[in-house]
Structures are given as structure tokens and as C-alpha cells.
Amino acid sequence: MKSIVVRRSLLALSLVAVIAGCSKEPAAPSTDTAAASAAQTAGALPEGWQRVVGVDVPDIEGATQQLPAQVTSDDGVATTVTDTSKIIAGGDDIIAVLEALGLDDQVYAAPLRSATASGRKAPQQFLFNRTTGVEGVLSLQGTLFLGNSLRRHSDLAAKLRGAGEAAVIVDDLQPAADKVRKVAAAVGMAEQGDALATKVQSQLDAAKASGAALAWHPRVIHVSATGAGGAPTVAGSDSASGKLITLAGGINIGDEAGVANYSALSNEGVVAAAPDVILVTENDLALFGGQAGLWRAYPTLRQTPAGAANRVWVMPDVELKSASVASGSGAVALAAAFATVPRP
């Protein structure tokens, strides 16, 4: 028990050092090498690395929409949606639900560097953040704005409504099943959304049971190429991935450190965290610049138990980084993978 307390203290102190600017931070990933690493990310992984991928992401086929749809946005505004032919989607979590509902062709504008197929092929690519201007979104001439963050999109949604454009927010900080239901209801497919959400929740429950039955619980660090002004980050307790790791039976090191959302962690903090597993998503691996870029961004990862064992797992972004329709499938796969980690 004493060693656990010491480990947590070291990790917390390392985080304080980062915030105070008194400790060396990991190097920011090079965007110049991201494109070159895309082939590696999509194809063969470095020797010893492993893909963890869910095999049963639920979807609906042949369903029809019922419009207009009357819904209450997460910012409390009652909204009537009459046209979803050109959806401006605020994030991959939203797009993943639309794909599962068979509405791929209605994703008209998506965030830059989208991890979903529909997002990448959307006619318009756009930067969505807290400072996104209403004029820029209106210029896209969409028919519905589906935001995914009360923090980033509330003001924008209010201004869009004032200009006559329908806007609904489904906040990212809520359970995956709830999010699936709300997105589906906003596009006139509430019944289908209930069916999808039920499947997702069933998968999450199964993963939770498997995680609870593990003989031991490996320590996990989920590293991201973005989240702290472009610097590499680790997943905190309120992130979708942090919650998924815990549900599947892992110990998320961001929880122990009290990290919020995605926050920078010093090289010393990485060593103190002593993860048994390194998790990275496909998109982030490309942004890091592949294997070399990941080690360059977090050189001390190699000094951890996970680094020494070369235990790096790569997951689809929508199965780890977003609470959405693929979360249950990702959680089941992650719990099964945790069961294979040898106890130290």
C-alpha cells in the first residue's frame, strides 16, 4: 500500500511541475511527419505492437427518418429540426452515430482531422472550437448544426438559431448511450436510436463485468498528440478514454494524478506513472509521426514497464477517444486485451 501512495505522490508532483513550467514537457508532435506515418498507422504496426479493435459496432440498416423532429438541446433550448440534408457536425462522436444510422451522406461539414470515414470525405472541413465564428459556420450553408460541447458550442448555437439555422448540442460529457439517443432523436430517428443505445449499453455492461473479473488491473496511460495547446497529453478522469479504461478493468494513470480531460504530463511524471500498457489512437499515432514520433514526444515512455515490454496498443479513435456508438465495442475489446497482460 505504501508504494501506491508514493507513486501517486510522485505523479501528482510531476503534474504540478508541468503546470508551473518548472519541468521539461514532452516535445510537441511534428505535423510534417504526420502524413508520412499514415501508411504505417493504417497498415502494419511496429514489431510487438498490437491493434485492439472492437468487432461488433452496432448499426441500423434501412430505417427512415421522421421529420420534423422536436428535441431539447443540451443547452436547454427546444428545437425543431426540419432538414438534415446538410449536417454540420461538431465532432467524430456525433458523426459516428450518424454513420450507424445510415446517414453518412448527410454529413456535410466535419472537423479538420476527423477520424471517421464520413468526416474525412465531408464536402466541407472546418475548425470547430470555442472561438468559431457564426459567420464562418453560416457561410457553409448547412441545414443543421449538431454541436458536441456545451463549453465550446453554446454561444455559437445561440447565434445560429438567431440567424434562423437549427442548432442542437449533444454534450460530449455524458454516457455513450445517452448521447446516441439524443443524436438519433435530433435527426428524426428516435426509435432507432433507442435500439442502438440499448446495444451499446449491453456491450458496456459486458465489458464492465469482464473488467471486474480480471485477476489484476494493469496500469494504463493513454497518450494523445493534442489537447494542451498542441502539446502531447494524457487522458484524465473525465475524458471518454479515461472512463473506458476504468470500466474495462484498467487503472487510468490520469485518474490517480487528478488530471482533467487531456493534460500535459512531464517526462518525470510518465516514469512515475509506471504504466503497464501504452494506448494511442490511430489518428494520434499519425499525428505523432508514427513510432519514432511517439518516442520522440514521450522519450521516457521507454523507461516504463509498458515501454520495456514494448506493449503499445493502437485503437480506432471512435472506440476509445469518443463516448459514442462504438464505445461498447471498444470497451469489450479492451477488457479482453487487459486479460492478456502478464502480472508483474
Results as ranks from 00 to 15, higher is better:
3 S>P: 00
16 V>F: 05
20 A>H: 01
20 A>K: 04
29 P>S: 11
29 P>L: 05
30 S>W: 10
30 S>E: 12
34 A>W: 02
41 T>N: 09
43 G>I: 08
45 L>W: 10
46 P>T: 12
47 E>M: 13
49 W>P: 06
52 V>H: 09
54 G>H: 06
60 I>P: 09
67 L>A: 12
72 T>L: 05
72 T>P: 02
73 S>P: 02
74 D>W: 07
81 V>H: 02
84 T>S: 06
87 I>T: 01
91 G>H: 03
91 G>F: 00
93 D>F: 01
99 E>D: 12
101 L>V: 02
102 G>T: 03
106 Q>V: 01
107 V>N: 00
113 R>P: 00
116 T>M: 02
119 G>I: 00
121 K>W: 00
125 Q>P: 10
130 R>I: 14
131 T>E: 15
137 V>R: 00
137 V>F: 03
139 S>Q: 12
142 G>W: 02
146 L>E: 01
150 L>R: 14
160 L>R: 01
161 R>W: 05
169 I>F: 07
173 L>W: 10
175 P>R: 12
186 A>R: 01
193 G>V: 06
196 L>P: 03
196 L>R: 05
196 L>Q: 06
198 T>P: 03
203 Q>Y: 02
204 L>Y: 02
208 K>E: 15
208 K>I: 04
209 A>C: 07
210 S>C: 00
220 V>G: 00
220 V>I: 07
235 A>V: 03
237 S>I: 11
238 D>H: 06
242 G>W: 03
247 L>T: 08
250 G>R: 03
251 I>P: 02
254 G>P: 03
254 G>F: 04
256 E>A: 12
258 G>Q: 09
261 N>A: 14
261 N>H: 10
263 S>M: 14
267 N>Y: 01
269 G>P: 02
270 V>L: 11
273 A>F: 07
274 A>I: 07
274 A>C: 13
283 N>D: 14
286 A>P: 05
288 F>D: 05
299 P>F: 10
306 A>P: 04
314 V>S: 03
320 L>G: 08
321 K>V: 15
336 A>D: 15
341 V>D: 10
